Simulated scan of single mutants.
Amino acid sequence: MFNNIPPITRNIIIINVIVFIVTYILGDKIVEYLAAFYPFSPYFHSWQIITHMFMHGGLMHILFNMMTLFSFGPILEQTLGDKKYLILYFASGLGAFFLFNAWNFVEVQTISRELQELGFNVNAYLSGASVNFSGSTDTIIRQKELLGSLNDIITIPMLGASGAIFGVVAAFATLYPDSKIGIMFIPVPIKVKYLLPIIVVISVYLGVSGNGGGIAHLAHVGGALVGWLLARNWKKHLYRFN
């Protein structure tokens, strides 16, 4: 059955599985090297904007992503052809990275501004200076809270193929809007043109509200947005390359 999967989708799945196994063997060092850190973090490297798409945080993470790609990828690969399918996949992954970190940038600026107002020298801290809290007890508590949030953005990377795969799903929903799929907790199949907007709205809320539970929800939105834009443009000329 695996040999019947179109080559691009099959190879993406194989690469993800290989990287997952290597990561499991080598541990955190490879995560630090290949996962995508905030672009202004000292841990960021340019290649991470690509390599993070092949990293996963656990068995269930990679299983869910690869099963989703297996479900939607082959149809799109056959419809769009190799070149456009590859563009869709990697452009969606890049869109995920940039939207997620655009929001991170907004948060960093907001946190830094409040820290400065509380008398904390953010620039000195980011340059490697020792932490120096000052002010009232309440002020110091707030400084520590904000600094913890700032450190989370700088030191916790994003990883996974979810952004790229959300782009694939969004493209599928754009090209085949009346297709019905089953999903957990919904007893009947639902058309993808209704399901995808619901998922995107929920992801935006969770990403902006900070209730994401460690999931990069805005990365999903970024991937879906790019996938929708590409498929919407390509749909006008579908028969030209189908």
Rank of each mutant, 00 (worst) to 15 (best):
R240A: 12
G27N: 10
I75V: 13
S179G: 00
N65E: 15
M158N: 10
Q109N: 15
Q143K: 04
T23E: 14
D152A: 12
G182C: 09
N123A: 13
V19Q: 05
L69W: 01
L147Y: 05
T155S: 14
M53Q: 15
F97C: 01
T51C: 07
H220K: 03
S136N: 03
L88D: 04
V201Q: 02
I8T: 15
L126A: 06
I62R: 02
I14M: 11
I154L: 14
A36L: 13
I202T: 13
D178P: 00
I8W: 00
T9E: 02
V31N: 07
T68E: 02
L225C: 10
F20V: 01
I183Y: 10
I87E: 08
T155L: 12
F40D: 06
I202C: 10
H220G: 06
I25R: 02
Y176H: 15
G212N: 04
M67E: 00
K84W: 09
W47D: 04
E107R: 15
T137G: 00
G95N: 11
W234A: 08
L150W: 10
N16Q: 12
N65C: 15
I140L: 06
L69K: 03
F100R: 01
G167A: 07
S46Y: 10
F70N: 05
E32M: 13
G93W: 01
P39M: 03
E32K: 15
Y176L: 13
A129T: 03
F54I: 09
L225A: 15
Y239R: 11
I13D: 06
I156G: 00
H220L: 10
I75R: 15
L80F: 13
G58D: 04
R10Y: 11
G222Y: 07
T155H: 12
M53I: 15
K236P: 06
R113C: 00
Q78C: 09
T139I: 11
N233P: 00
Q109T: 09
L26A: 14
L195M: 14
A224V: 10
V22C: 09
N4E: 14
S112T: 09
G81N: 07
H237R: 11
S112L: 03
T137H: 10
K83L: 10
S112W: 04
G227F: 08
F172Q: 03
V192A: 06
Y85N: 01
A102P: 01
G222W: 07
V169G: 02
K83T: 12
T68N: 00
L146K: 09
F166K: 01
L69R: 02
I18A: 15
V226H: 11
V122Y: 00
L126V: 01
L59Y: 08
T139W: 01
I183A: 14
Q109E: 13
A171T: 02
G222V: 09
I21A: 11
V188D: 01
G227A: 07
K83W: 07
S134H: 10
S46E: 04
R240K: 14
T110H: 04
T139S: 13
Y194W: 14
S127D: 07
I183S: 09
Q143R: 05
A171H: 04
F98T: 12
H45N: 13
L126P: 07
K191I: 05
I153H: 08
